[in-house]
Design a binder for these strands. Structure first.
Lengths: 112, 112
DNA sequence: GCTATAATTCACCAACTGGTTAATTAACCA
DNA sequence: TGGTTAATTAACCAGTTGGTGAATTATAGC
């Protein structure tokens, strides 16, 4: 799990347009034009976003006539997920505390 | 789960120095100076990284004399984790295929 | 060969990032 | 009070990012 790869993956995910593109690609392969449609954004802007995603290994591109369809590749997401998982105990810990607090409240309520 | 919050979290994680800071903070609260030590980087540069992390809600700061210790807050990591989890089936799917392939290889080996 | 469509490259721009050094603020200590 | 340490702010710089419009490339279809 290279640090540079994580840099690229997280940077790619840090933009809402790119996250939306990925969620669209989760439904299946698509042309650049179809990807661009929901965004009020020029075609070159979308091309740039696709370059970032491709460079991060999050999509793969092919050729079909004048179309260059995009396909989701989720492998880098697994690496990102593995990195974040290392911190799971920290957010679960705080939920445990919240949980304990809520139970404490409830215990008080039950004593009339 | 706000999009802006995800933007900030992923952007904060996209830098290796900031990831290293988080992993140091996983060991416990620390001063800025101690955080800066392992990096060949000026104090103001570290302060800037801490600002990014704080703005993303990934750390919290307190006061103790002339020190301003940092503490890990993992809640935004849970949101990021939740977002990525939506794509789990995509990377597991490909591992399933790899798994099937490996089993197929093995099956061939077992037939002499 | 001509025209329409899909997508990219190019040149440009404003804003942001990640770093620097120098100056400043804040607290401790003697 | 004055000196030391911790940390931040300020001013600056080079490189990257996210967008634009105009020109270019590539392919389909008549």
């Amino acid at each position: 799990m290279s640090s540079l790869q994580l840099d690229r993956t997280f940077a790619a995910l840090a933009d809402p347009t790119r996250r939306a593109i990925l969620s669209r690609l989760a439904l299946g392969e698509t042309s650049v034009k179809d990807l661009a449609m929901p965004f009020s954004m020029s075609a070159p802007a979308v091309t740039k976003h696709l370059k970032v995603l491709e460079h991060a290994g999050l999509i793969e591109r092919s050729r079909s006539a004048q179309w260059r369809p995009c396909k989701l590749k989720a492998a880098p997401l697994k690496e990102a997920n593995d990195w974040i998982e290392e911190y799971r105990r920290f957010w679960e810990q705080s939920f445990d505390r919240l949980d304990a607090y809520l139970q404490q409240i409830q215990a008080k309520d039950e004593k009339p």
